[in-house]
Design a protein around this nucleic acid. Sequence first.
DNA 1: GGTTGTGAATACATTCACAGCA
DNA 2: TGCTGTGAATGTATTCACAACC
Lengths: 214, 214
Amino acid sequence: MIHSNKNNSMFVPEVVVQRIPIYIRILQEELKYGNTVISSKNLGKRLQMSSAQIRKDLSYFGKFGKQGQGYPIEFLVEKLKIVVGLGQKWNACIVGTGRLGQAIINYPGFSPEGFKIVAAFDSNNIKLDSSADSIPILGMESLSKTIKQKSINVAIVSVPALEAQKVIDLLVFEGIKGILNYAPISPKVPNGVVIRNIDPILSLQSMTYYLKES
Amino acid sequence: MIHSNKNNSMFVPEVVVQRIPIYIRILQEELKYGNTVISSKNLGKRLQMSSAQIRKDLSYFGKFGKQGQGYPIEFLVEKLKIVVGLGQKWNACIVGTGRLGQAIINYPGFSPEGFKIVAAFDSNNIKLDSSADSIPILGMESLSKTIKQKSINVAIVSVPALEAQKVIDLLVFEGIKGILNYAPISPKVPNGVVIRNIDPILSLQSMTYYLKES
DNA sequence: GGTTGTGAATACATTCACAGCA
DNA sequence: TGCTGTGAATGTATTCACAACC
């Protein structure tokens, strides 16, 4: 072919990748409302962003819209899910079953979005007994074995700050390539491992810049 | 003056503001290790970022370093804290005392970083009795009064998704200008209100882009 | 008329590279 | 010599603006 179509090997900026799940979420809401088509303008209004940005973002992955009408929602959701890696199911483990860990385990929101928590680990295995629905709480010594047995491919870290880097190193060593870290540290991971930090303190602290007087 | 110095009215990019609390955190760690001076090079190594970026970031706020030596850590922390709004104390309330809300209330990390949770609210005020150390759990009808009485200036939202926008609107109406939102929505707030979202699902979902095969 | 998809233009963020200082 | 602070250069992201199409 002469004019090659948009293909999967083209580089997509990280910011764009991060916005796709947001689009998916809103599109799914729109589906629930019974809508079947949405324009970039309306989607933009919904998210307080420009329609141009939405069109540009989507254009990295293909042509999903129809001129004069907009995007067929169901079709677009389907495509975006595949693009962003939600075509497959992900098995997650959680390390650290303190108060936060327990809240995460019991949060019902992960599973419907494609992330099934299939095991929990804690160095102090008294912290939580089989309370949560069928998620086993195991000692750290079972980590390696369980990751393989249950095909775990992402990990959630909710251990205290001082232990976090050690735990992350261990997870990386065991082959985990995606980590969601709740510990308030700036973790180091090798290339090829993706890590995301959930850090409410940092969020608050950068907010105050805009709130302080003077 | 002819060559005006860097003054507080110059625009600082948002990304820069967001990095300042990270610097503060690392600098405080270095202090604990007993170090008194750090170069942009070493700070950069610690954070896996370029020394140039650190110097540039800091330069938005003043000249804190000494050529040939680096930055005096204690002095720099002090300055950055003031710059970012941590010179004052912040009183926070939390709305929503379900499992997540409880985990947040009991997390000991907010207070030492300048955010004191002074009240909690829930529409179902049976959810938590005075369990947590001295933080009162109140009904939503007390919100307005309590915000004034306790000089609350930031709010944490941990209610279910369906209620979140309503709660946020209410907080804004009551004069709250900074909100940390844990609900999985794209909230709308008027200009002048700063909101930050904590959204582990979105973090996971954009991670998988880099993990999926093909 | 309404809306997409996209090069071109603009705006923003990072890095370079070096003068100036301790 | 070793480091900061910063303009200039480069790299990235967003917005503009319009041809192509329903």
